[in-house]
Design a protein around this nucleic acid. Structure first.
Lengths: 220, 220
DNA sequence: GCGGCCCTCCCCCGCGCGGGGGAGACGAAC
DNA sequence: GTTCGTCTCCCCCGCGCGGGGGAGGGCCGC
């Protein structure tokens, strides 16, 4: 059975984006969506998701309140992954103190998002994107962080995969990449597939987008 | 008969790049390549290209000399499009005075390159990428520029095409774009094909790259 | 030594993609 | 009124792409 996720965010666009990222990933499915924290508890009871991706700032009930509500009122509660736009969002502290299992920046690349969901689902407690590490340090120390770090690094691209992604991001076809690297096209396909899986994307087009969005390749 | 182009550049990589861009464009074919200006005159005589894309800086004979040589010694000479890396390349002035029909920055996006080739082939004299306009102004005023400008704008994407490109650049498939825009997938395919043709690229992956490289979409 | 990862290559298969045509409807420009 | 561009939709067709398997060799670390 796939890993199920409940999305809670007042912006439809964010929900669509998260859904796209997660649905593209084999083994993860989005069980449902909610536009406000107020709707979370009944939805969790109904859908029994493995993970709740929870926005912090929402109009009726914010992510902190909603996290508390879920953990207080639901038996065998799901993991709660707090999603925020700003890395210095003070609400994040509150959400983590309320019992959230991890937090994630909205501008995280797809691979990080997927990893984050997988990690909290598997019980690793906290996630720290590089940009937030210093903030985390000031927050107080961190259980399970080393494990999470190692896991994130395992998900990083190998040298060859990175090389292939660079060429994909320059518009080359598999055959052209094969020629350039002096290997067979099947080998290139194999690397491309690995890259797609690790980035959590569906096709090479989305891989190029991820490459630009993550700074892996830069315009100009 | 297609528009034929002779590439003259000492860097193989540049020739490969230009060839890829131009060959991807229907109606344009690369008739030949030369690695130095010294080889241009015989090649022009042999191949009778419509356009010569001429690097300025080359080891044996530079683009200025080569331009002069072609125009002086070849009857019914091809159009000459000067290609340069630096927008403030002083050699460009010389090449233009020597009779070149236009100039182009190497970092121009594929669509601009294709447009430039088409424009000089059709007789429009000078091309001014935005980044070079001020330089052009200081150079002295400009015949045929208004015509070129209008033509470049005609080659720009329509509203619908731009909308489709934006969605392509967010990783959506044709079917997803169709759903989003509430039209048929055939319609989307039609728009995508137009976009590819106008950008002078081969597939949606290269279109996304062009979108990022041109600033049409921005990372983050 | 043995497991694990990486790189390499192979098979089959389905489908999305893109090229090549064409065509109708609408509105703006002439 | 006619022309032109845009947007819409349709056909056929080939191929590149990506998923699903598997498999072998090399290198490193335990």
């Amino acid at each position: 059975m796939p890993l199920t996720v409940l999305l809670v965010d007042d912006e439809p666009l964010v929900r669509v984006g998260l859904r796209a990222v997660l649905e593209a990933q084999p083994g993860i499915s989005v069980a449902g969506e909610a536009a406000d924290g107020a709707a979370v508890v009944p939805l969790v009871r109904q859908l029994r998701p493995d993970v709740v991706m929870m926005d912090v700032r929402m109009p009726l009930m914010d992510g902190i309140e909603a996290t508390r509500a879920v953990l207080r009122t639901v038996a065998d509660p799901p993991k709660i992954l707090v999603v925020t736009t700003f890395e210095n969002d003070e609400y994040v502290y509150g959400a983590l103190r309320a019992g959230a299992d991890g937090f994630l920046l909205k501008r995280a690349r797809p691979a990080e998002i997927v990893n984050a969901v997988r990690l909290v689902a598997e019980g690793d407690s906290l996630l720290f994107p590089a940009a937030v590490r210093q903030l985390a340090a000031s927050y107080g120390e961190t259980r399970g962080n080393a494990g999470a770090r190692a896991r994130l690094e395992r998900a990083e691209l190998t040298d060859r995969e990175a090389e292939v992604l660079r060429l994909v991001s320059r518009g080359l076809s598999n055959a052209e990449i094969a020629e350039r690297l002096v290997v067979g096209t099947e080998t290139v396909k194999s690397h491309v597939s690995s890259v797609l899986a690790k980035l959590g994307v569906r096709d090479r087009t989305q891989a190029v987008i991820a490459a630009y969005e993550s700074g892996f390749v830069a315009p100009g």
